[in-house]
Design a binder for these strands. Structure first.
Lengths: 235, 235
DNA sequence: AAAGTACAACCTGTACACAGCTGAACTTTT
DNA sequence: AAAAGTTCAGCTGTGTACAGGTTGTACTTT
């Protein structure tokens, strides 16, 4: 059943190229990260032809990526105008955070995963990175990447695939909005809050208490929302 | 600011055509409903060119619709093969139902909507339709449409936009799988279960108790999962 | 007769040209 | 000078041809 031509194509692909699906995922992840890490802040206008030139492809695969980003709620495609990185209104922001708190608690209740030594080691690494950051003020991108990595670890601990899916969806949707407010908060304050969350989660994980992990996460989201609520005023 | 040419185009559009966005939504809703109502049962292979011919457009807009359906989890696009209506494995099915129960309860807790006379009237209509169905056995599509309409009403009662969004997502993702089992269940049984849910929800709505609505819905999902669990055996 | 191979018919993925839309700068009119 | 009208550059939407992938089938070889 294996054809020679196919075998050759697969070998060549393994050496140099990448399959179409891989290319799509690569470009998608790249643009998503740029939006989430505020390389493209809300309001940025993205052009299909510009992106196509940068990635060395035609508009067609770029359009596919942008449409997926639109489904994810990260951009809005407007005919004749361009593809605009979305902002989020105050009401939706708060609703999303309320929901994220509930979902974090469910993380510990619906088919929680078993916690291994490896998970603990990963958390310890994050704690070490966060402690280093205490001495270097205003490294917002590093702070954001620790938050991103924590999210990935918690994702791997969520046994329920559907739950994991929507937790990630809403994380990506509001994280970048939250990062917008970072410079307005005190550096020492947010770093110590991050260390508090990490150590609480680590303690719960050490006793294989996924419900405790979920509660810690939910509580952290609540504290963070409180922290920036004074900046969230209706116009 | 209004140009003559634009004005003409808008008038012409109002009479005959439709804007691009409307066309997309129309085709998307049509294909989604066909999948959910089992016109395209799981495993069906959809061809872009065939669909393009049917809707009188080129492959491009059809591809956009299919990619959105893939994002919703209703189809899987495979290069060289076709676009296949997805089935769902047992584990994911149960996980999705567990999550849906929790989300139904959240519906009553996160910014619940105020219930009007109009909502009650809509539920009464559904009850009337369900009672008529008691006499006509095995009208599975009518049964499914009542379920669909109830979902729409509950959706309009969910104040939190993000919550509403994912409740709908998971409804569309598993409803059609559930409908697959309908013929294996007793008609009288499922109709009476539907009437039970409708009357419980109506009672809660009559006293403006959205938490009660959520609990009724959650309980109904639990009962239904129990009902078909004897058919859900590992291969 | 059975296994392996080449191929044809189908599919989706990509590139590109063109049509339609939008907003802003510019020109004309009052 | 203000307001209305016009033009235009740039954008996304669409159609279409072609490239690449997959699978079943007919054919060849052992």
């Amino acid at each position: 059943m294996i054809k020679l031509a196919e075998s050759d194509a697969q070998r060549a692909r393994a050496q140099n190229d990448e399959t179409g699906s891989q290319r799509f995922e690569r470009i998608y992840a790249e643009l998503r990260d740029r939006i989430c890490l505020l390389v493209y802040p809300p309001g940025t206008v993205l052009s299909e032809v510009t992106l196509a030139r940068e990635f060395g492809v035609s508009r067609t695969p770029i359009r596919r990526v942008l449409h997926r980003l639109e489904f994810m709620g990260l951009v809005q495609i407007m005919n004749g105008v361009g593809t605009i990185v979305t902002d989020i209104d105050l009401k939706t922001f708060k609703e999303t955070y309320d929901l994220r708190m509930r979902l974090a608690e469910l993380m510990g209740e619906l088919s929680p995963a078993y916690i291994t030594e490896d998970h603990l080691a990963q958390i310890d690494q994050l704690i070490a990175r966060a402690k280093k950051l205490q001495k270097h003020r205003d490294r917002f991108e590093d702070y954001a990447m620790i938050t991103n990595d924590l999210q990935k670890i918690l994702s791997s601990l969520t046994g329920s695939a559907p739950l994991r899916e929507i937790i990630e969806l809403f994380y990506f949707r509001v994280a970048r909005i939250w990062f917008t407010f970072l410079p307005q908060l005190g550096w020492d304050d947010i770093i110590s809050a991050q260390l508090t969350e990490l150590s609480e989660i680590r303690a719960a994980m050490a006793s294989n208490d996924m419900r405790g992990v979920g509660r810690s996460r939910s509580l952290h989201l609540h504290r963070m929302l409180t922290r920036i609520s004074r900046f969230l005023v209706e116009p």
